[in-house]
Amino acid sequence: MNIQFTEVKEGSHTVLPSFSFDAGLTGIYTDIKRTQVIMNQLKPAGYLHFNNDGLALRLTVEETFRYHKDLSGVTIPIEDMIALFGLQHEKKTKVKDLSESCRNCLSFLRPFLYSKDLLIIEEPFDRLDEEGRKVMAQLISRIKEQEKTILLLGHNLEELLIVTEDLYRIDQNGFHKMDFNEGTASPAEEEQPVIRIEKIQTKHEGKTILFNPPEIDYVESVDGSAQVNVAGKGYNCTLTLQELEKQLRPYGFYRCHRSYIVNLQKVREIITWTKNSYSLKLNDRESSVIPLSRAKLAELKELLGVS
């Protein structure tokens, strides 16, 4: 479906540049302000979904499903629907007593049933626990199978990458398709295990800061430049992701996604969202969740020696 934005200006500052593109399951990586502007523009065209919106708090989960099933006339059995939303253990709970994450999943029932051709979701994975994110990723892929257009708006790249790689970012000059195809990683040649000191040089507020590779949690590419994440903070690095990959590989780092390099020592968990979408959970301070390409899964498992 073709989506058009008209330009919105604030003084001389362009908040939203005009743009038109074909969207399928598309993410827009942007800030809160632009999200608002976009939502206002698309309001007449599609179904807007906000979290935790529009639930009858005094009904139980099962009653809510029955009500919306009768109202929408869908033919999916109630039990299956409840399971799809991961709420089979909360059937008799009143909506107001549900955990926030479960409630946010439940509020996705309405867009799931009532959205027409275009569904716009603000911060799809906001305020959801891991179980909830899994449910949400599956629900979004179910809606996608119905040939509907889904537009995700968010300021958390890792979360958007759970469901789609078709991403745009917005700045003053326009929309930019985010490129995760900056050359396929060349197979790194086997290097001899030689002891050597290799510091990673970063810049932070004009200072040059050196990190030992094992300190680094992961490296991500933000707008084409590499950002080194150490203890929950990001530092800019002048090297490209490819150069960093080469340099860090001997220290147990792995290019798990086109724009991410992860320190394998810190990987705690491989999260399976859907059959073909994965993330890695680290045991760093923030318990960061970073995307894992489908193509890299097999190799990574081999590297980690897991099956």
């Binding site: 009858a56 009653e63 006339g73």
Partner: peptide
């Protein structure tokens, strides 16, 4: 007009009403 949908709204309202003292 669908009796099924009206009934769904009726039941939902009844439950909400009876639980809201």
């Amino acid at each position: 007009v669908s009796v099924k949908r009206m009934r769904a709204i009726f039941i939902k309202d009844y439950k909400e009403f009876s639980r809201n003292y």
